[in-house]
Design a protein around this nucleic acid. Structure first.
Length: 451
RNA sequence: GCGAUGGUAGCUCAGCUGGUAGAGCCCUCGGUUGUGGUCCGAGUGGUCGUGGGUUCGAGUCCCAUCCAUCGCCCCA
């Protein structure tokens, strides 16, 4: 019989236990941060009915959706009536519309689950990945203070994650849309293309972007391109950027509203005590998704800009218009945890998660098996994650196991120690070893773990 | 979906102008009595992505195909 080669499907992140532990800790940190701000957990099924999921039907996303169908139904020639979610926002919209009467508004939910996209897998791009979302959904209206709260949460979480410095880039789509409209680029299709080029200012230099804008495809007049780039391509302080915006001679209501919203949000950030240097107004941030209507965010790690945005989001005026007549504006962000973790792992910045066991009780003498079990029970009662090497066997082998599994401390007790009422504790990473009275064992292990 | 590069042991790779497969790491065992990670020794492990062609003979040349990586697109 020929063996089937064991292979993970492309585009998934599957980890060895020690890394999985590290990943789990990262998710725990994010979850704690979200709960610290009072967000409540929601989980939705991995699949939704296709009609619910594909309301947006923005060609691109639909091509990337995985359909789900039972084999029986396929045999009968039915088309798939379910599909895997490709983000958490659409399921949220359905959830809120469905449970509207039972929820407290403004509804603050967090959701940490996997989503699925049928893309061609590339480095750091996955077909299955975690999104860690928070959103606040208002009924009829939602104040701009919530737009300011999002960066406060991002700031809190990324400080806790401890991946070094980071910058939250913030913008308001009304500014860009109004600006383009006021400058004679009003038709939606052309505007999207122009925004896409502007969004590339991060990667391409100004002259290249200008050439793309004025080229035959978009045909933006040269003086208009210069005005746009003059405003957004130059790095200024946040206050100077706002001043430059107010000084623009563009007669457009949307543009003015955008400026007002952005400056209101910036004031709100101070109230939330988000440090000034953690947030930067970046007028080039456009975000591809068209359901964002106001504030947009993208967060970058200062030392690893190549990773791209690690936390993005924005404001949308009406979340669930496809499912309910209620008006439900919202604002939210999403951390792409899988990509973030993978990239940091590649960069060697993820610390080994070790094992879940903190201490391994070895079995040196089969006659003392009962003692080992008591010992382990004592350690567990003291709050230590404890494992017994149940197979026994050569001590060298048991030590080797602890080392490979990442268990930092081993407890040894042979007939000599038993006679003396002691046990030997060894810290495998430091090679440190001492013999202590059984009563002191838990405290000694704890001291070694902290030491 | 388009373009570029590559597919040899579980992993990283070597194999020159064609002559019947190698290294390091990993893994297993050993280096005698209760100590891992270092060191020394031994061992397991490959139909050279797949199919076809040229040749006395192909990992090595040719064609096709699949897959992977990178770029474009889009995005977390």
């Amino acid at each position: 019989m020929s063996l089937i080669p064991p292979r993970t499907p492309p585009g998934v992140m599957e980890l060895l236990p020690r890394q999985q532990v590290a990943f789990q800790r990262m998710l725990d940190t994010i979850r704690r941060g979200y709960e610290r701000f009072g967000f409540v957990p929601v989980e939705t099924p991995v699949f939704e009915t296709a009609d619910v999921l594909l309301t947006k039907s923005g060609g691109e996303t639909e091509k990337q959706v995985y359909f789900v169908q039972s084999t029986g139904a396929i045999q009968q020639g039915h088309k798939p009536d379910m599909a895997l979610r490709f983000d958490l926002t659409v399921p949220l919209a359905r959830y809120v519309a469905e449970h509207e009467r039972d929820l407290a508004f403004p509804f603050r939910r967090y959701q940490i689950q996997r989503v699925y996209r049928g893309e061609r897998a590339q480095r750091g791009r996955f077909r299955e990945f975690y999104q860690c979302d928070i959103d606040v959904i208002g009924k009829d209206s939602l104040g701009l203070h919530y737009d300011a709260e999002m960066p406060a949460v991002i700031h809190h979480v990324f400080r806790e994650l401890d991946f070094g410095g980071f910058t939250i880039n913030i913008n308001n789509r009304k500014i860009l849309l109004g600006l383009l409209d006021g400058l004679g680029i009003g038709e939606p299709e052309r505007r999207v293309l122009v925004l896409r080029e502007i969004d590339k200012l991060d990667k391409l230099d100004r002259d290249t972007v200008r050439a793309n804008l004025t080229g035959e495809g978009l045909a933006v007049p040269g003086d208009v391109a210069d005005r746009i780039l003059g405003l957004i391509a130059e790095q200024k302080s946040n206050d100077d950027t706002l001043a430059a915006l107010r000084a623009m001679d563009v007669d457009n209501d949307t543009f003015r509203t955008g400026i007002h919203e952005l400056s209101t949000v910036m004031e709100g950030l101070r109230a939330f005590q988000v440090p000034d240097d953690a947030v930067r107004i970046n007028l080039a941030i456009a975000r591809g998704l068209d359901y964002y209507t106001g504030t947009v965010y993208e967060t970058f790690l200062n030392d690893h800009r190549g990773i791209g945005s690690v936390c993005s989001g924005g404001r949308y005026e009406n979340l669930a218009s496809h499912y309910t007549k209620s008006r439900l504006p919202g604002v939210g962000i999403s951390i792409g945890a899988t990509r973030l973790f993978y990239q940091l792992l590649e960069a060697g910045l993820i610390k080994d998660g070790g094992a879940t066991a903190q201490v391994l009780v070895t079995q040196m003498d089969p006659a003392l098996t009962g003692d080992y079990f008591r010992l382990a029970a004592d350690l567990r009662a003291a709050g230590l994650n404890t494992e017994i090497q149940l197979d026994g066997g050569k001590l060298a082998k048991q030590m080797k196991y602890a080392d490979k599994a990442g268990i930092p401390v081993a407890v040894l007790m042979g007939s000599d120690e038993k006679a003396r009422g002691t046990a030997t504790v060894k810290h495998l990473l430091r090679g440190e070893q001492r013999e202590v009275a059984l009563a002191d064992l838990p405290a000694t292990v704890k001291a070694l773990l902290e030491g």
